[in-house]
Design a protein around this nucleic acid. Structure first.
Lengths: 197, 197
DNA sequence: TAACATTTGTCTATTGTTTAGACAGATCAA
DNA sequence: TTGATCTGTCTAAACAATAGACAAATGTTA
């Protein structure tokens, strides 16, 4: 496994930024490598040093974003917020924080001709996270189909994030968190993060 | 006069970004070169390749911003907005556009311990611009002290920009432009841009 | 104020990224 | 079908970024 140097990452980040800008302007499909290097202000050779083609690059960006979400969930409690977390666990804050911090990129879900596969992979990542990192307790003794339940919760949370993104992040991060808490009080009362047990 | 390469400018921009972030975090005075290179993720040697010290760098950033304002005024009419410009000339739109586009940097006026001299140089630049690029017609036949008048108009416009910045750009660019137009209807009816004559 | 630690500014040699330019083949548009 | 543009690959050369050392200046603490 090769480590990527700081310099290489810097260059790749410039390309990712350029790609995102161009997707918003003209859509993914019509973008050429020439467009990319002009936007990013690099030589065409430089692009090929880092990527084989624009699809590899799009994958790289997409994986980075999805991986970032997963990492956010696993963050230790250092960065815990000074907010009443009675009903919402820390991981949810970290996810929201990460999305907001990377909002320029997550904004890509507002476009149709965007990172290939993003519209499927992003909700799927939320599902994954709920499957792998969260445990639930049922309230009362009525039996629940846990698989359905996780789908329900995961996609519900994704829906909230989605509407926040689609609204152009009108609400501040803190306002949004409060909204989510209010909603969770009525609907996801039983969520428990494994790390909390 | 040496031309700076694209690569050099890219590096300098990273440093300028880092400087701005650090000013907002800890103020200008206490920033060391070490802090800067850590924030910008460069080697300390690299900093000294581009700048003699942090003051030279701060000057560079400050001049870039002021110069950008002046260039905005001189922009041709290509980028003219599709808005009713009856009462406000194109240059005002360009200034507002530039400030918004560079809002991360102009935000620096909200800090006390910031780019040295910025709190004087910025309003002065507005004055300069009014002196050098705008001509006025007096309405009616009462004589007006033109020097006073330009100070009045220039600082007034700066005040509007300032409160927009200080409010964290709450209003959208278009909303703000409309506000300015409304105000200008009552107060700066006689402004004429030389290029418009 | 003495001792210690940190930061500064300058310098060299080395590393490694970015570059220009060429090429044949693929794709696009008229 | 022709001409134009874009692709992917490859070189050698240009150049920016780096590690590391140094003496001097500055800051900190006892």
């Amino acid at each position: 496994m090769y480590e990527e140097s700081v310099r290489q990452n810097r260059t790749k980040n410039h390309f990712k930024l350029a790609l995102t800008e161009l997707i918003k302007e003209q859509g993914f499909y019509s973008i050429t490598v020439k467009d990319l290097v002009e936007q990013a202000q690099y030589n065409r050779s430089t692009f090929y040093v880092h990527y084989h083609d624009k699809f590899e690059m799009a994958d790289d960006l997409q994986h980075e974003l999805l991986h970032g979400l997963e990492e956010a969930v696993q963050l230790p409690y250092k960065r815990r917020r000074t907010i009443n977390t009675e009903k919402l666990n820390t991981s949810h804050f970290e996810i929201i924080s990460y999305v907001y911090q990377q909002r320029f990129y997550f904004d890509l879900i507002n476009y149709d001709d965007t990172l290939p596969g993003l519209h499927r992979s992003l909700p799927n990542k939320f599902l994954d996270i709920y499957k792998n990192y969260f445990a639930f307790e049922t309230i009362g003794d009525q039996p629940v189909n846990m698989d359905y339940f996780k789908h329900y919760i995961a996609l519900g949370f994704y829906g909230l994030i989605q509407s926040w993104i689609q609204g152009g992040f009108q609400e501040s991060q803190d306002d949004f968190i409060h909204e989510v808490i209010e909603l969770s009080k009525t609907h996801i009362r039983s969520v428990q993060y494994i790390g909390d047990l």
